[in-house]
Design a protein around this nucleic acid. Structure first.
Lengths: 245, 245
DNA sequence: AAGTGGTCTAGACCACCAC
DNA sequence: TGGTGGTCTAGACCACTTT
């Protein structure tokens, strides 16, 4: 099991191995995995490492464990649902679509009181506002308005965003901002004139409104984002019971 | 730290203790907790147990840890967002409201093909259908239609549901069904005639549609549920980055 | 009774961050 | 450099489920 030169933790390597074990077709939905102690012997690691690998796959919705019964492969319906942060780009790919975007505008603005409060900043500090139409398979499915609080003197051009595609990738790779947690609030709203023009819906049509505040690893609010989605689009999630209660 | 007679795991007891430590006002948002090794000595437990307690509070959004820096109290905005299964009853209380319901109908029906497929059952098996108007502070905020697959010969009366209030409580306490995971899909729809009558909205008004399939601990689908919420209501959630990737 | 996952320990070393 | 969280080990015992 132990690989010589990589820095990837053992339990993550083992998790990959277990994925392969499942994918090899040997273990179908709701069928049992080998016992923890057995896996520990097989792969020459401690039982604790096995448990960490299993917990990782549980979080990903691939396995579930029942006290006294065993550890089992999750049903297909569960596997597709993520519980983690996904950029629009990654999420669209996961849904089997081709992501795209049209950048409508990108400009530095000053925060109004509401947004300043959400992002914990002074009302006159500069913000980067990006307005985009999100595409899936070349059809518009959402209108997105992002307000970004970038580091002092940070520069971001429209060309750059168009090339990379994912704003989150730029935040990570260029600015060293690590998205760690986001707080989301989802509701329904009626389409306004602007939405009609850009999304091709009728006035007053129901849209899915998704608001989000993204926090960095330091728990500083970095982005406030508002998305309006056209009906065929759905917000999907998996919710678990939680360890205690 | 060790308590003598209870069966509650040590790390859960410690988690409660840590909550109190934070609540005692000594540790504000983004302020550091004592180091893991220090907590281990203070409470006379192993470091591993301390780490389990911290992880539990991380999942609840109360703490976060940064490699090499320390463990910190989460900001207030994060603490309020749950990531776990909540009944309408519990969720409403958490939002600071008084939950209520009007049961419109409760009857045994046979599944149509769509629902039979979702619940993995034959199209002619019996199902319990419950239609309810959900109230918050005595005002209607949602219309809910539930399809339940109950154990052979299970009985559930309307009076019982009215008394207990929470369907999930009945599933757990009376039928021994443990909700473990649910798959949710959220979108926007226009209000139909029925919604107009029951929720007091105008025809075509935007509503938040939330579909859910609830799985038991054995990963058997137990409930399919459709909820339509009036606009002020919002679906709130917290999403984290995930351990690996 | 046998087998499973869940908890707990004590100690070691690694990776990361701040000073 | 010293402190922090992250990984890993080997072994013990407990709690739950099934036979």
């Amino acid at each position: 099991m132990r690989s010589t030169k990589t820095n990837v933790p053992l339990y993550q390597q083992l998790a990959e191995t277990l994925k392969q074990l499942m994918a090899s077709g040997n273990i179908g939905a709701k069928e049992p995995m080998p016992a923890e102690r057995e896996l520990a012997i097989t792969y020459q690691v401690s039982r604790d490492t096995v448990r960490k690998a299993i917990r990782l796959l549980e979080e990903q919705g691939l396995l579930y464990s029942d006290h006294g019964r065993g550890t089992f492969a999750a049903p297909e319906s569960v596997r597709q649902m993520s519980r983690f942060l996904d950029s629009f780009t990654d999420d669209t790919i996961k849904r089997g679509g081709v992501p795209g975007q049209t950048i409508l505008s990108m400009e530095t603005v000053v925060a109004n009181m509401a947004i300043a409060s959400l992002l914990h900043m002074q009302p006159d500090e500069p913000l980067l506002r990006i307005k985009r139409v999100r595409l899936m398979n070349n059809k518009p499915i959402g209108l997105q308005e992002s307000f970004l609080r970038l580091p002092e003197g940070a520069q971001l051009t429209q060309k750059e965003l168009e090339q990379v595609g994912s704003l989150y990738r730029i935040l990570i790779d260029k600015f060293g901002i690590k998205p760690s947690e986001s707080l989301e609030s989802v509701g329904a709203v009626a389409a306004q004139a602007e939405d009609v023009a850009l999304l091709g819906v009728t006035l007053g049509a129901p849209l899915l409104l998704c608001e989000r505040v993204m926090l960095s690893d330091r728990r500083e609010p970095v982005e406030y984002c508002e998305m309006k989605y056209v009906p065929p689009y759905r917000y999907k999630t998996r919710i678990s019971k939680g360890s205690a209660g």
